[in-house]
Design a protein around this nucleic acid. Structure first.
Lengths: 224, 224
DNA sequence: GCGCGAGTGGCACGTTGTTGCCAGTTCGGG
DNA sequence: CCCGAACTGGCAACAACGTGCCACTCGCGC
Protein backbone atom coordinates (compact mmCIF):
# COMPACT_ATOMS: atom_id res chain seq x y z
CA UNK A 1 0.00 0.00 0.00
CA UNK A 2 2.98 2.29 0.01
CA UNK A 3 3.20 5.68 1.59
CA UNK A 4 -0.49 6.25 1.89
CA UNK A 5 -1.22 3.89 4.70
CA UNK A 6 1.24 5.32 7.14
CA UNK A 7 0.08 8.80 6.26
CA UNK A 8 -3.61 8.12 6.69
CA UNK A 9 -5.11 6.63 3.59
CA UNK A 10 -4.97 3.55 1.41
CA UNK A 11 -6.43 2.73 -1.98
CA UNK A 12 -8.20 -0.57 -2.55
CA UNK A 13 -9.03 -2.08 -5.92
CA UNK A 14 -12.39 -3.63 -6.49
CA UNK A 15 -15.26 -4.26 -4.19
CA UNK A 16 -13.91 -7.61 -3.15
CA UNK A 17 -10.79 -6.11 -1.67
CA UNK A 18 -12.83 -3.38 -0.06
CA UNK A 19 -14.96 -5.90 1.76
CA UNK A 20 -12.01 -8.03 2.74
CA UNK A 21 -9.84 -5.24 4.05
CA UNK A 22 -12.37 -2.71 5.24
CA UNK A 23 -15.49 -4.75 5.85
CA UNK A 24 -14.94 -4.69 9.57
CA UNK A 25 -15.01 -0.93 9.41
CA UNK A 26 -18.63 -1.04 8.43
CA UNK A 27 -19.52 -3.54 11.06
CA UNK A 28 -17.65 -1.52 13.65
CA UNK A 29 -19.83 1.55 13.27
CA UNK A 30 -21.16 2.65 16.62
CA UNK A 31 -22.36 6.21 16.37
CA UNK A 32 -23.07 7.16 12.81
CA UNK A 33 -22.84 5.60 9.40
CA UNK A 34 -23.19 8.37 6.84
CA UNK A 35 -23.36 7.34 3.24
CA UNK A 36 -23.85 9.29 0.02
CA UNK A 37 -24.34 7.87 -3.46
CA UNK A 38 -26.03 8.72 -6.72
CA UNK A 39 -28.10 5.57 -6.80
CA UNK A 40 -28.45 2.11 -5.32
CA UNK A 41 -25.89 0.48 -7.57
CA UNK A 42 -22.78 1.39 -5.65
CA UNK A 43 -22.14 -0.07 -2.21
CA UNK A 44 -24.35 -2.85 -3.44
CA UNK A 45 -23.98 -6.50 -2.71
CA UNK A 46 -20.52 -6.73 -1.30
CA UNK A 47 -20.71 -3.89 1.12
CA UNK A 48 -24.06 -4.93 2.39
CA UNK A 49 -22.66 -8.38 2.95
CA UNK A 50 -20.31 -6.84 5.48
CA UNK A 51 -23.40 -5.87 7.38
CA UNK A 52 -24.56 -9.44 7.59
CA UNK A 53 -26.96 -10.13 10.39
CA UNK A 54 -25.56 -9.76 13.84
CA UNK A 55 -22.48 -7.92 12.70
CA UNK A 56 -24.08 -4.57 13.17
CA UNK A 57 -25.35 -2.84 16.27
CA UNK A 58 -29.04 -1.99 16.45
CA UNK A 59 -30.09 1.06 14.51
CA UNK A 60 -31.72 4.04 16.05
CA UNK A 61 -34.19 5.42 13.59
CA UNK A 62 -34.69 8.60 15.50
CA UNK A 63 -32.57 9.47 18.49
CA UNK A 64 -30.49 8.44 21.46
CA UNK A 65 -28.45 5.31 21.57
CA UNK A 66 -27.53 2.92 18.86
CA UNK A 67 -26.27 3.59 15.38
CA UNK A 68 -27.57 6.38 13.16
CA UNK A 69 -27.57 4.94 9.66
CA UNK A 70 -27.92 7.85 7.26
CA UNK A 71 -28.08 7.40 3.54
CA UNK A 72 -28.44 10.16 1.01
CA UNK A 73 -29.11 9.47 -2.65
CA UNK A 74 -29.94 11.53 -5.70
CA UNK A 75 -33.15 11.34 -7.65
CA UNK A 76 -31.61 8.66 -9.78
CA UNK A 77 -32.36 6.27 -6.95
CA UNK A 78 -36.04 6.97 -7.44
CA UNK A 79 -36.13 6.05 -11.06
CA UNK A 80 -37.99 2.78 -11.24
CA UNK A 81 -40.43 0.90 -9.01
CA UNK A 82 -37.76 -1.68 -8.23
CA UNK A 83 -35.43 0.94 -6.82
CA UNK A 84 -38.24 2.52 -4.87
CA UNK A 85 -39.06 -0.77 -3.25
CA UNK A 86 -35.45 -1.26 -2.23
CA UNK A 87 -35.33 2.25 -0.86
CA UNK A 88 -38.46 1.66 1.12
CA UNK A 89 -36.93 -1.53 2.48
CA UNK A 90 -33.81 0.33 3.53
CA UNK A 91 -35.87 2.95 5.28
CA UNK A 92 -38.02 0.27 6.92
CA UNK A 93 -34.92 -1.38 8.36
CA UNK A 94 -34.32 1.66 10.50
CA UNK A 95 -32.01 3.67 8.29
CA UNK A 96 -32.68 7.33 7.66
CA UNK A 97 -32.88 7.90 3.94
CA UNK A 98 -32.90 11.23 2.18
CA UNK A 99 -32.87 12.42 -1.39
CA UNK A 100 -30.55 15.20 -2.45
CA UNK A 101 -31.43 17.49 -5.30
CA UNK A 102 -27.76 17.85 -6.17
CA UNK A 103 -25.66 15.35 -8.08
CA UNK A 104 -23.28 13.10 -6.21
CA UNK A 105 -20.59 12.23 -8.70
CA UNK A 106 -18.53 10.14 -6.29
CA UNK A 107 -19.85 7.89 -3.60
CA UNK A 108 -18.69 8.51 -0.07
CA UNK A 109 -19.04 6.94 3.34
CA UNK A 110 -18.02 8.30 6.70
CA UNK A 111 -18.06 5.97 9.70
CA UNK A 112 -18.23 7.47 13.17
CA UNK A 113 -16.44 10.56 11.88
CA UNK A 114 -13.25 8.55 12.08
CA UNK A 115 -12.90 6.87 8.72
CA UNK A 116 -13.96 7.97 5.27
CA UNK A 117 -14.24 5.84 2.17
CA UNK A 118 -14.35 7.50 -1.21
CA UNK A 119 -15.19 5.65 -4.38
CA UNK A 120 -12.97 6.31 -7.36
CA UNK A 121 -13.89 6.73 -10.96
CA UNK A 122 -15.59 3.84 -12.71
CA UNK A 123 -13.70 4.66 -15.83
CA UNK A 124 -10.87 2.17 -16.10
CA UNK A 125 -10.35 -1.24 -14.60
CA UNK A 126 -11.90 -2.35 -11.36
CA UNK A 127 -13.42 0.32 -9.23
CA UNK A 128 -11.12 1.77 -6.61
CA UNK A 129 -11.94 2.79 -3.08
CA UNK A 130 -9.83 5.10 -0.99
CA UNK A 131 -9.97 4.65 2.77
CA UNK A 132 -9.01 7.83 4.60
CA UNK A 133 -8.12 7.95 8.29
CA UNK A 134 -6.34 11.28 8.64
CA UNK A 135 -8.49 13.06 11.21
CA UNK A 136 -8.66 16.49 9.59
CA UNK A 137 -9.43 15.10 6.17
CA UNK A 138 -12.13 12.81 7.53
CA UNK A 139 -13.65 15.69 9.46
CA UNK A 140 -13.65 17.82 6.33
CA UNK A 141 -15.30 15.10 4.30
CA UNK A 142 -17.83 14.49 7.03
CA UNK A 143 -18.62 18.17 7.16
CA UNK A 144 -19.38 18.25 3.45
CA UNK A 145 -21.30 15.00 3.33
CA UNK A 146 -23.29 16.05 6.35
CA UNK A 147 -24.13 19.34 4.69
CA UNK A 148 -25.49 17.42 1.72
CA UNK A 149 -27.42 15.23 4.13
CA UNK A 150 -28.91 18.24 5.88
CA UNK A 151 -29.89 19.90 2.64
CA UNK A 152 -31.60 16.76 1.35
CA UNK A 153 -35.18 15.91 2.07
CA UNK A 154 -36.62 12.79 3.54
CA UNK A 155 -37.31 10.04 1.08
CA UNK A 156 -40.85 9.73 2.38
CA UNK A 157 -41.56 13.19 1.03
CA UNK A 158 -40.15 12.24 -2.36
CA UNK A 159 -41.73 8.92 -3.16
CA UNK A 160 -44.99 10.42 -4.24
CA UNK A 161 -43.28 13.23 -6.10
CA UNK A 162 -41.15 10.67 -7.86
CA UNK A 163 -43.00 11.34 -11.08
CA UNK A 164 -40.74 14.36 -11.40
CA UNK A 165 -38.71 13.85 -14.53
CA UNK A 166 -35.16 15.05 -14.84
CA UNK A 167 -34.84 18.54 -16.24
CA UNK A 168 -32.61 19.04 -19.21
CA UNK A 169 -30.37 22.00 -19.78
CA UNK A 170 -33.00 24.00 -21.58
CA UNK A 171 -35.61 23.44 -18.93
CA UNK A 172 -33.18 24.77 -16.35
CA UNK A 173 -32.62 27.96 -18.28
CA UNK A 174 -36.34 28.47 -18.63
CA UNK A 175 -36.62 27.94 -14.89
CA UNK A 176 -33.93 30.51 -14.38
CA UNK A 177 -35.78 33.05 -16.45
CA UNK A 178 -39.02 32.39 -14.63
CA UNK A 179 -37.30 32.63 -11.27
CA UNK A 180 -35.73 35.90 -12.30
CA UNK A 181 -39.20 37.36 -12.58
CA UNK A 182 -38.90 38.25 -16.24
CA UNK A 183 -41.91 38.64 -18.46
CA UNK A 184 -42.34 36.02 -21.15
CA UNK A 185 -41.22 38.47 -23.76
CA UNK A 186 -37.99 39.39 -21.99
CA UNK A 187 -37.28 35.78 -21.12
CA UNK A 188 -37.78 34.61 -24.70
CA UNK A 189 -35.42 37.28 -25.95
CA UNK A 190 -32.80 36.40 -23.39
CA UNK A 191 -32.99 32.72 -24.22
CA UNK A 192 -33.01 33.38 -27.94
CA UNK A 193 -36.27 31.69 -28.72
CA UNK A 194 -39.61 32.92 -29.89
CA UNK A 195 -42.32 33.96 -27.51
CA UNK A 196 -44.45 31.08 -28.68
CA UNK A 197 -41.75 28.50 -28.03
CA UNK A 198 -40.89 29.92 -24.65
CA UNK A 199 -44.51 29.63 -23.63
CA UNK A 200 -44.55 26.09 -24.90
CA UNK A 201 -41.62 25.37 -22.60
CA UNK A 202 -43.32 26.94 -19.66
CA UNK A 203 -46.50 25.02 -20.37
CA UNK A 204 -44.50 21.82 -20.62
CA UNK A 205 -42.78 22.53 -17.34
CA UNK A 206 -46.04 23.26 -15.61
CA UNK A 207 -47.55 20.08 -16.96
CA UNK A 208 -44.49 18.16 -15.83
CA UNK A 209 -44.92 19.25 -12.24
CA UNK A 210 -48.70 19.17 -12.39
CA UNK A 211 -49.15 22.83 -11.63
CA UNK A 212 -52.17 24.83 -12.71
CA UNK A 213 -50.74 28.24 -12.00
CA UNK A 214 -47.31 29.75 -12.27
CA UNK A 215 -47.23 30.45 -8.57
CA UNK A 216 -47.85 26.80 -7.83
CA UNK A 217 -45.21 25.83 -10.35
CA UNK A 218 -42.75 28.10 -8.58
CA UNK A 219 -43.47 26.49 -5.25
CA UNK A 220 -43.14 22.98 -6.62
CA UNK A 221 -40.09 23.62 -8.65
CA UNK A 222 -38.12 25.40 -5.97
CA UNK A 223 -34.69 23.92 -5.57
CA UNK A 224 -34.31 22.15 -8.87
CA UNK B 1 5.60 17.12 6.10
CA UNK B 2 6.70 13.52 6.56
CA UNK B 3 4.86 10.75 4.87
CA UNK B 4 1.87 12.82 3.97
CA UNK B 5 3.46 14.87 1.29
CA UNK B 6 4.71 11.99 -0.78
CA UNK B 7 1.38 10.26 -0.39
CA UNK B 8 -0.74 13.20 -1.43
CA UNK B 9 -1.37 15.50 1.48
CA UNK B 10 0.37 17.79 3.91
CA UNK B 11 -0.80 19.64 6.99
CA UNK B 12 0.07 23.29 7.46
CA UNK B 13 -0.17 25.21 10.71
CA UNK B 14 -1.61 28.65 10.74
CA UNK B 15 -2.77 30.90 7.98
CA UNK B 16 0.66 32.36 7.52
CA UNK B 17 2.14 29.02 6.56
CA UNK B 18 -0.85 28.28 4.36
CA UNK B 19 -0.30 31.41 2.35
CA UNK B 20 3.43 30.90 2.18
CA UNK B 21 3.34 27.29 1.10
CA UNK B 22 0.07 27.07 -0.80
CA UNK B 23 -0.62 30.61 -1.85
CA UNK B 24 0.46 29.91 -5.38
CA UNK B 25 -2.18 27.20 -5.53
CA UNK B 26 -4.86 29.82 -5.30
CA UNK B 27 -3.28 32.04 -7.87
CA UNK B 28 -2.80 29.07 -10.18
CA UNK B 29 -6.51 28.35 -10.50
CA UNK B 30 -7.53 28.16 -14.13
CA UNK B 31 -10.86 26.40 -14.41
CA UNK B 32 -12.69 26.49 -11.14
CA UNK B 33 -12.14 27.75 -7.64
CA UNK B 34 -14.77 26.15 -5.42
CA UNK B 35 -14.89 27.31 -1.86
CA UNK B 36 -17.17 26.46 1.04
CA UNK B 37 -17.26 28.12 4.44
CA UNK B 38 -19.69 28.88 7.23
CA UNK B 39 -19.06 32.60 7.15
CA UNK B 40 -16.70 35.26 5.91
CA UNK B 41 -14.21 34.90 8.74
CA UNK B 42 -12.23 31.98 7.42
CA UNK B 43 -10.10 32.32 4.31
CA UNK B 44 -10.02 35.93 5.29
CA UNK B 45 -7.16 38.31 4.92
CA UNK B 46 -4.27 36.00 4.26
CA UNK B 47 -5.89 33.89 1.63
CA UNK B 48 -7.29 36.84 -0.20
CA UNK B 49 -3.85 38.34 -0.18
CA UNK B 50 -2.72 35.41 -2.29
CA UNK B 51 -5.18 36.65 -4.86
CA UNK B 52 -3.49 39.99 -5.02
CA UNK B 53 -4.20 41.91 -8.19
CA UNK B 54 -2.84 40.41 -11.33
CA UNK B 55 -2.12 37.05 -9.76
CA UNK B 56 -5.44 35.65 -10.84
CA UNK B 57 -6.89 34.99 -14.27
CA UNK B 58 -10.06 36.84 -15.26
CA UNK B 59 -13.26 35.53 -13.78
CA UNK B 60 -16.14 34.34 -15.85
CA UNK B 61 -19.32 35.25 -14.09
CA UNK B 62 -21.50 33.23 -16.40
CA UNK B 63 -20.03 30.91 -18.96
CA UNK B 64 -17.18 29.89 -21.22
CA UNK B 65 -13.62 30.82 -20.66
CA UNK B 66 -11.86 32.11 -17.63
CA UNK B 67 -12.06 31.04 -14.03
CA UNK B 68 -15.30 30.06 -12.33
CA UNK B 69 -15.02 31.40 -8.79
CA UNK B 70 -17.70 29.70 -6.75
CA UNK B 71 -18.24 30.43 -3.10
CA UNK B 72 -20.84 28.86 -0.90
CA UNK B 73 -21.58 30.10 2.60
CA UNK B 74 -24.16 29.40 5.24
CA UNK B 75 -26.73 31.85 6.47
CA UNK B 76 -24.27 32.95 9.10
CA UNK B 77 -22.64 35.00 6.39
CA UNK B 78 -25.83 37.01 6.04
CA UNK B 79 -26.04 38.07 9.65
CA UNK B 80 -25.22 41.71 9.67
CA UNK B 81 -25.20 44.54 7.15
CA UNK B 82 -21.42 44.58 7.13
CA UNK B 83 -21.21 40.96 6.05
CA UNK B 84 -23.88 41.53 3.45
CA UNK B 85 -21.91 44.35 1.97
CA UNK B 86 -18.81 42.22 1.76
CA UNK B 87 -20.82 39.44 0.15
CA UNK B 88 -22.23 41.85 -2.38
CA UNK B 89 -18.71 43.05 -3.13
CA UNK B 90 -17.53 39.49 -3.66
CA UNK B 91 -20.42 38.83 -6.00
CA UNK B 92 -19.82 42.07 -7.84
CA UNK B 93 -16.20 41.09 -8.48
CA UNK B 94 -17.42 38.30 -10.71
CA UNK B 95 -17.57 35.43 -8.23
CA UNK B 96 -20.64 33.26 -8.04
CA UNK B 97 -21.90 33.26 -4.49
CA UNK B 98 -24.50 30.98 -3.02
CA UNK B 99 -25.98 30.37 0.39
CA UNK B 100 -26.42 26.85 1.68
CA UNK B 101 -29.16 25.99 4.11
CA UNK B 102 -26.96 23.31 5.65
CA UNK B 103 -24.15 23.88 8.12
CA UNK B 104 -20.56 23.78 6.94
CA UNK B 105 -18.57 22.79 9.98
CA UNK B 106 -15.22 22.74 8.21
CA UNK B 107 -14.13 25.07 5.49
CA UNK B 108 -13.01 23.56 2.23
CA UNK B 109 -11.52 24.69 -1.05
CA UNK B 110 -11.06 22.75 -4.25
CA UNK B 111 -8.94 24.24 -6.99
CA UNK B 112 -9.41 22.98 -10.54
CA UNK B 113 -10.48 19.62 -9.16
CA UNK B 114 -6.81 18.93 -8.56
CA UNK B 115 -6.07 20.17 -5.08
CA UNK B 116 -8.25 20.35 -2.00
CA UNK B 117 -7.62 22.33 1.14
CA UNK B 118 -9.48 21.45 4.29
CA UNK B 119 -9.46 23.62 7.38
CA UNK B 120 -8.91 21.87 10.68
CA UNK B 121 -10.56 22.47 13.99
CA UNK B 122 -10.19 25.86 15.59
CA UNK B 123 -10.03 24.22 18.96
CA UNK B 124 -6.39 24.14 19.99
CA UNK B 125 -3.44 26.16 18.90
CA UNK B 126 -3.14 27.78 15.50
CA UNK B 127 -5.56 26.68 12.91
CA UNK B 128 -4.38 23.87 10.67
CA UNK B 129 -4.97 23.41 6.99
CA UNK B 130 -4.59 20.14 5.16
CA UNK B 131 -3.65 20.27 1.51
CA UNK B 132 -4.78 17.16 -0.35
CA UNK B 133 -3.49 16.18 -3.77
CA UNK B 134 -4.40 12.52 -4.04
CA UNK B 135 -6.62 12.45 -7.12
CA UNK B 136 -9.38 10.19 -5.85
CA UNK B 137 -9.66 11.99 -2.54
CA UNK B 138 -9.76 15.38 -4.23
CA UNK B 139 -12.41 14.15 -6.64
CA UNK B 140 -14.47 12.83 -3.77
CA UNK B 141 -14.21 16.10 -1.88
CA UNK B 142 -15.05 18.04 -5.00
CA UNK B 143 -18.07 15.86 -5.58
CA UNK B 144 -19.40 16.60 -2.11
CA UNK B 145 -18.59 20.29 -2.14
CA UNK B 146 -20.12 20.64 -5.57
CA UNK B 147 -23.25 18.91 -4.36
CA UNK B 148 -23.50 21.48 -1.59
CA UNK B 149 -22.93 24.19 -4.16
CA UNK B 150 -25.69 22.86 -6.38
CA UNK B 151 -28.12 22.57 -3.51
CA UNK B 152 -27.45 26.11 -2.36
CA UNK B 153 -29.27 29.11 -3.71
CA UNK B 154 -27.90 32.25 -5.24
CA UNK B 155 -27.04 34.94 -2.76
CA UNK B 156 -29.05 37.45 -4.76
CA UNK B 157 -32.17 35.52 -3.86
CA UNK B 158 -31.23 35.57 -0.18
CA UNK B 159 -30.19 39.15 0.48
CA UNK B 160 -33.69 40.50 0.45
CA UNK B 161 -35.05 37.44 2.15
CA UNK B 162 -33.27 38.41 5.32
CA UNK B 163 -35.79 41.13 5.92
CA UNK B 164 -38.78 38.90 5.32
CA UNK B 165 -41.50 39.99 7.68
CA UNK B 166 -43.64 37.48 9.50
CA UNK B 167 -46.80 36.54 7.71
CA UNK B 168 -50.09 36.96 9.49
CA UNK B 169 -52.90 34.45 9.40
CA UNK B 170 -54.59 35.98 6.41
CA UNK B 171 -51.42 36.11 4.38
CA UNK B 172 -50.91 32.43 5.01
CA UNK B 173 -54.36 31.55 3.74
CA UNK B 174 -53.75 33.58 0.63
CA UNK B 175 -50.49 31.71 0.21
CA UNK B 176 -52.36 28.47 0.58
CA UNK B 177 -54.81 29.42 -2.13
CA UNK B 178 -52.02 30.46 -4.45
CA UNK B 179 -50.09 27.28 -3.76
CA UNK B 180 -53.20 25.25 -4.46
CA UNK B 181 -53.14 26.56 -7.99
CA UNK B 182 -56.55 28.20 -7.82
CA UNK B 183 -57.51 31.05 -10.08
CA UNK B 184 -58.01 34.38 -8.35
CA UNK B 185 -61.74 34.03 -8.71
CA UNK B 186 -61.88 30.62 -7.05
CA UNK B 187 -59.44 31.68 -4.35
CA UNK B 188 -61.42 34.81 -3.52
CA UNK B 189 -64.62 32.79 -3.23
CA UNK B 190 -62.97 30.21 -1.00
CA UNK B 191 -61.53 32.86 1.27
CA UNK B 192 -64.76 34.79 1.34
CA UNK B 193 -63.42 38.04 0.02
CA UNK B 194 -63.93 39.97 -3.14
CA UNK B 195 -61.79 39.45 -6.19
CA UNK B 196 -60.43 42.93 -5.84
CA UNK B 197 -59.38 42.44 -2.24
CA UNK B 198 -57.81 39.08 -2.92
CA UNK B 199 -55.74 40.62 -5.63
CA UNK B 200 -54.74 43.35 -3.28
CA UNK B 201 -53.47 40.69 -0.88
CA UNK B 202 -51.53 38.97 -3.61
CA UNK B 203 -50.00 42.23 -4.74
CA UNK B 204 -49.04 42.97 -1.14
CA UNK B 205 -47.38 39.60 -0.75
CA UNK B 206 -45.46 39.98 -3.97
CA UNK B 207 -44.27 43.40 -2.91
CA UNK B 208 -43.25 41.99 0.46
CA UNK B 209 -40.96 39.41 -1.09
CA UNK B 210 -39.87 41.68 -3.92
CA UNK B 211 -41.17 39.47 -6.67
CA UNK B 212 -42.15 40.75 -10.08
CA UNK B 213 -43.98 37.65 -11.21
CA UNK B 214 -46.12 35.10 -9.47
CA UNK B 215 -43.71 32.36 -10.38
CA UNK B 216 -40.89 34.20 -8.68
CA UNK B 217 -43.07 34.81 -5.68
CA UNK B 218 -43.76 31.10 -5.48
CA UNK B 219 -40.08 30.32 -5.54
CA UNK B 220 -39.27 32.86 -2.86
CA UNK B 221 -42.12 32.00 -0.61
CA UNK B 222 -41.65 28.27 -0.65
CA UNK B 223 -41.52 26.77 2.80
CA UNK B 224 -43.12 29.58 4.82
C1' DG C 1 -37.36 13.07 -54.23
C1' DC C 2 -41.32 12.06 -51.27
C1' DG C 3 -43.82 11.41 -47.18
C1' DC C 4 -43.71 11.66 -42.42
C1' DG C 5 -43.20 13.21 -37.73
C1' DA C 6 -41.23 16.47 -34.65
C1' DG C 7 -40.21 20.85 -33.65
C1' DT C 8 -40.51 26.00 -34.44
C1' DG C 9 -42.51 30.62 -35.02
C1' DG C 10 -46.30 33.78 -36.26
C1' DC C 11 -50.98 35.06 -35.45
C1' DA C 12 -55.37 35.42 -33.28
C1' DC C 13 -58.30 35.27 -29.63
C1' DG C 14 -59.78 33.98 -25.05
C1' DT C 15 -58.51 33.93 -20.19
C1' DT C 16 -56.22 35.56 -16.24
C1' DG C 17 -53.81 38.86 -13.67
C1' DT C 18 -52.63 44.06 -12.46
C1' DT C 19 -53.74 48.50 -11.40
C1' DG C 20 -55.89 53.19 -11.02
C1' DC C 21 -60.02 55.33 -9.75
C1' DC C 22 -63.95 56.04 -7.00
C1' DA C 23 -67.80 55.19 -4.02
C1' DG C 24 -69.13 53.04 0.27
C1' DT C 25 -68.04 51.34 5.10
C1' DT C 26 -65.96 51.20 9.63
C1' DC C 27 -63.60 53.03 13.46
C1' DG C 28 -61.55 56.39 16.58
C1' DG C 29 -60.52 60.89 17.81
C1' DG C 30 -61.77 65.70 18.37
C1' DC D 1 -71.66 64.94 15.02
C1' DC D 2 -68.01 65.53 11.77
C1' DC D 3 -63.61 64.39 9.96
C1' DG D 4 -59.99 61.64 8.34
C1' DA D 5 -57.53 57.31 7.94
C1' DA D 6 -57.82 52.75 6.65
C1' DC D 7 -60.10 49.38 4.41
C1' DT D 8 -63.38 47.19 1.07
C1' DG D 9 -65.60 46.17 -3.40
C1' DG D 10 -66.98 47.37 -8.10
C1' DC D 11 -65.54 48.91 -12.58
C1' DA D 12 -62.63 49.56 -16.46
C1' DA D 13 -58.52 49.62 -19.11
C1' DC D 14 -54.49 47.42 -19.79
C1' DA D 15 -50.73 43.97 -19.50
C1' DA D 16 -49.55 39.36 -19.33
C1' DC D 17 -50.43 34.68 -20.05
C1' DG D 18 -52.50 30.25 -22.50
C1' DT D 19 -53.52 27.84 -26.50
C1' DG D 20 -55.46 26.42 -31.04
C1' DC D 21 -54.36 26.77 -35.80
C1' DC D 22 -51.38 26.90 -39.62
C1' DA D 23 -47.32 27.37 -42.39
C1' DC D 24 -42.54 26.32 -42.46
C1' DT D 25 -38.20 23.77 -41.75
C1' DC D 26 -35.35 19.66 -40.58
C1' DG D 27 -33.91 15.14 -40.42
C1' DC D 28 -35.02 10.32 -41.34
C1' DG D 29 -36.31 6.26 -43.81
C1' DC D 30 -38.04 4.47 -48.02
Amino acid sequence: MGHGEAAGFVTLRGEEELVRRAGDLFASAREEFLCGAADLVTWSGGVNAAFADGKRPPLRPEREGGLAMRKVYTRRALGDPHSERRLAAIAASGAQVRISAAPLAREAIVVDRRVAILAGSEARGPRTYTVVRAADVVEGIHSLLYATWEAAEDVADCLGAAALPELDEEARSVLGALSAGLTDEAAARRLGMSLRTYRRRVAGLMAAVGATSRFQAGVRVRGR
